[in-house]
Amino acid sequence: MKVDRREAIGYVVMAMLVFSLVASVIPVEPKTKIRLGPTWFPLEKGVEFVEELDPQDVSFKLQAGELKVINSDVERPLARISGFKTDEGVAVGEVLLELPKGWSGRLNLSVKMGELKLSGAEVGELMASIVMGSIDGTVKVTRALTVKGTANEVDLTIIVPENVKVVLEVDARRSSILVDGKSYEGASQRLTSGEGTELPLKVKAGRVKLVVIRG
């Protein structure tokens, strides 16, 4: 049987079609282990551990998962991690970051993919960034706040001291802001409110919903 060039190429194309289709329908086996850095971790249970953090300057990186920040009765900041952490200090999984009540230190949070929930945490200075996901909740800030989430949604209630001048900069496609009882709508915003020491609040995200109150 003579096969011409067109037919031969056609059979190759057919083989590629079948190969692609088979590879896209064969069942995928769930992974049982994950390697982070040099170590293999069992995936079904994960690892639960507590990490003590710097008393005044906390920096935490989460690759994927949920990072929740709360105030509790702890004496120094600590992270309760259900998941894994690489040698480079990047975590995967669920993290509960506990800060002492009335904490006035510096908190630097970075989330690649997931959720950052601020559940009434008190901090002196907060810097938070997220690549994919959302940032929401309530945070009490005394010195400064910077939140970056380029294409994400930020929904925050920020509690600031009575005697400060809030300097708010919002860089967003859409924003809805309530500062000291006055509401502002639109895209990017730059405004000040109150008298006293300046307290800069910078928020950059796709959509921003902010409530700034005194307390």
Partner: peptide, 26 residues
């Protein structure tokens, strides 16, 4: 169309970052 859609996800699923989602990736 089907192969490309499914294969892109299957490829990404082999990365460590997607490991927590492993049981539902199939």
């Amino acid at each position: 169309s089907y192969s490309l859609g499914s294969l892109i996800l299957r490829n990404i699923s082999s990365w460590g970052i997607m490991a927590p989602l492993s049981p539902i990736l199939g």
